[in-house]
């Protein structure tokens, strides 16, 4: 049998070299192999957005991305967006505005919102809605999530 090929990538700023079969999904690589469990598994089908990470800065569904697809690229997970102490402005706004309920979708929303505010520091409400359209939340009705993102942008 040929040796299991290596994924060579950068994850949250650190170089990572890890053997992974060709069919390994990025989500499994993160959660199972690297113990980065902040990225959540909600549907395995690209429908819920819980597994959203940034690849070269773009929000990407890690459940639909092969681990080898991340080779040579920069992956940022929720862990990479979280300061060593305290919270990022988006995270703080989510807490203050009650934008988390069960919290399972939250990391995906934080990733999507962070990317939005990086590219558009002062989005309109419609732009916020558009940016999170790939993330499902069953608890909040999105109301407080949208409020939180707008509040974070106002503070930026």
């Amino acid at each position: 049998m040929p040796p299991t090929p290596l994924v060579r990538t950068r994850i949250n700023g650190q170089s990572v070299e890890i053997a992974a079969p060709a069919e390994r999904i990025l989500l499994d690589l993160l959660r199972e192999d690297l113990n980065l469990t902040g990225t959540k598994r909600g549907c395995d089908l690209g429908t819920c957005g819980c597994c959203t990470v940034l690849i070269d800065g773009r929000p990407t569904l890690s459940c639909l991305t092969l681990a080898h697809g991340a080779s040579g690229r920069e992956v940022t997970t929720i862990e990479g967006l979280s300061p060593a102490s305290g919270l990022s402005p988006v995270q703080r706004a989510f807490v203050e505005h009650g934008a988390t309920q069960c919290g399972f979708c939250t990391p995906g929303f934080i990733v999507s919102a962070t990317a939005l505010l990086r590219d558009h520091p002062h989005p309109t409400r419609d732009e916020v809605v558009e940016a999170i359209a790939g993330n499902l939340c069953r608890c909040t009705g999105y109301t407080k999530i949208i409020e939180a993102i707008l509040a974070a942008s106002a503070g930026a």
């Binding site: 979280s82 988006v90 995270q91 990391p107």
Partner: peptide, 20 residues
């Protein structure tokens, strides 16, 4: 208006669910 006490864990992906 009392922010959820576990909010900081949830927004950082640190809240622990069974599959974690």
């Amino acid at each position: 208006r009392i922010p959820y006490v576990e909010g900081p864990l949830k927004v950082t992906g640190r809240a622990e669910y069974t599959d974690d």
